[in-house]
Design a protein around this nucleic acid. Sequence first.
DNA 1: AATGGCAACAACCGCAGGGAT
DNA 2: TATCCCTGCGGTTGTTGCCAT
Length: 371
Amino acid sequence: MPMERLPSHASFVQLLLSLQPQQQAKEGSRREPPHLTKPRVLKETTNTTMGRAPCCDKANVKKGPWSPEEDAKLKAYIEQYGTGGNWIALPQKIGLKRCGKSCRLRWLNYLRPNIKHGGFSEEEDHIICSLYISIGSRWSIIAAQLPGRTDNDIKNYWNTRLKKKLLGKQRKDHQQQARRGGGPKQEDRSDESGNPAVAGEGGSRSTYWPEPAMPVYSTGQPDHHLNNNHASTTDRLLMMLGGRSSNDSNASHQSPFIPQYSSVPLPQIYNNSASLINPSVNTTSFKEAMQVPHRFAAEVDEMLHCNPVKLESLDCFYGAGGISDEHQGTTTSESMNIWSEVSPLIYPNVVTSYQGMQQCLFEEPVHLGMQ
DNA sequence: AATGGCAACAACCGCAGGGAT
DNA sequence: TATCCCTGCGGTTGTTGCCAT
């Protein structure tokens, strides 16, 4: 029985509301990477007297890729009887020498009906990016917005492709800039658009970010800062993430994100988005839920500092040609067509978050340390 | 043809949350 | 209330296949 893949607004809000406690727990117990603590040993001997009891008998459990026979067994059983609410006991019933968790994962990520693999569309790319910006690496929530996609799939896709698209473009720009000793130039764009092969899925391992397809966000209010043509994309990203503008004389080369997260009541930013998604939502909980993970901030920070000057490749997060750039033009309307088909859960969330941040910046500078 | 490097994907691991007892 | 057990999640590693040399 496949899970509900298209949650309603209410259920999505519920999901968001459930984020914070988990996040706090995660942050509080962020552990060292396995390679720093202990090697990933295939534990043949398990200590049953200390620590956590193993979920299954590791010695009698098969690991590695699933065979077609195993797949068939598992699928046939679940389709006929369901999981029975107990994954641990399931492999024994079927006669599979697999861990229950492994069975669950195999079913959810591969055998479950209506699963899509590979071939992520540009729309899906942007949905993933948008949600990643909004909520960080909450892959299960992101997956819930992409019918047929699994969190594992999306996670892999992000780690292997999307992230590299950004980083790869950053490096390219950085190199070009180093060669010229100047800032971003118009020919950068024409070079990309004139070379469609590099953006194709097939082949290129040094792909560039595809042509932006996000809508231009209308803030519905005077936007002194963002309508300033001198406002760099860097500034926009910094503000979007709750940091400060690089035009701020106090801006330093330190991470613009992490200190702010630790000291700024960032969730205030999300007031508007909460009420927009569901007016009845408890905004306090929502605000708490929408805290951006520190790890995400650090990651974006790393991207930024790869090339602290030029961030045009991240324009996809804001809209074609930027939010208020003069040359938004036709690309914007085209992208609007694409985005009109996207789940309304996603776009308003990002847009209103952005709005809220602007508001926060202009109305409550004290919260951003801009006093 | 052989080989090394890399990318993509599948799968595993450990932790935290939450329900059941 | 405390404890146990299961599930869900995110991070990470292992495996496979492709490509360049």
